[in-house]
């Protein structure tokens, strides 16, 4: 599903990744663990094509990621669900509209949007929070909204960057439970984290990255 072949990328002012090679099979839950600045987010950004490698090749679903037109890139991104470290919800929109955003982009009908978002609100225990605004939610609830938004278009791959960051123990357990369910549904998950322990029981593999190099 995801394959990196000797991928290197140097950022202008900080370390990137150096000769990274790994692959993730369909339906696998892989955790990318390493300290801050190790290159975890760089790997995720290479997958959703916000960055391109200096050398080596990135392959997603059997296709090499080439520098394509921005339109094609946008359409490819619709197959990937992304959970950002700070949740990145739009604060001037309701929770319903935040979850529905990718569906508006892909042009789903009003009825299907209603159905899908309500289903996700229910699944994440937020069914009464649809009309609330992000500021009215706890950090844990915001994370759940971010995951729900990533799942809205039923992506093939879920990329989660620090999904447990800034949340307490109970909310962490809930998020892990949701990630576990998503894995069981057969979705490929790559989660980046600086603390791997919480994932040990649910992840198929943990990849260690230090100073831009994988040390599996």
């Amino acid at each position: 599903m995801i394959r990196f072949l000797n991928v290197s990328l140097e950022h202008a002012q900080r370390r990137g990744i150096d000769n990274v090679t790994f692959s993730i099979a369909k339906g696998e839950f892989v955790v990318l663990a390493g300290p801050t600045g190790a290159g975890k987010t760089t790997i995720l950004r290479l997958i959703y094509q916000e960055l391109f490698p200096d050398s080596g090749q990135v392959m997603i679903q059997g296709q090499f990621q080439h520098k394509v037109s921005s339109k094609e890139r946008a359409i490819k991104r619709r197959e990937i669900g992304i959970v950002f470290p700070e949740a990145r919800l739009l604060h001037d929109r309701t929770i319903f509209d935040n979850i529905a955003l990718p569906l508006y982009i892909t042009g789903e009908t009003r009825r299907r949007i209603q159905l899908q978002v309500n289903r996700l609100l229910f699944r994440f225990g937020l069914k009464d929070r649809g009309k609330a605004y992000p500021a009215e939610l706890s950090t844990g609830e915001q994370k759940k909204v971010a995951i729900a938004r990533a799942l809205a278009v039923r992506p093939l791959i879920l990329l989660a960057d620090e999904p447990l960051a800034h949340i307490d123990g109970e909310a962490c357990a809930e998020i892990l439970e949701h990630l576990c369910q998503i894995k069981e549904e057969g979705m490929t998950i790559l989660a980046a984290t600086h603390v791997a322990d919480p994932y040990k029981s649910i992840a198929n593999r943990i990849l260690q990255i230090i100073n831009g190099r994988l040390t599996e």
Binding site: K71, R77, R78, I82, L101, I105
Partner: peptide
Amino acid sequence: HLMSLLGATPWM
């Protein structure tokens, strides 16, 4: 930026 990462094309 977020909409772009969620798949909105530049022309959208």
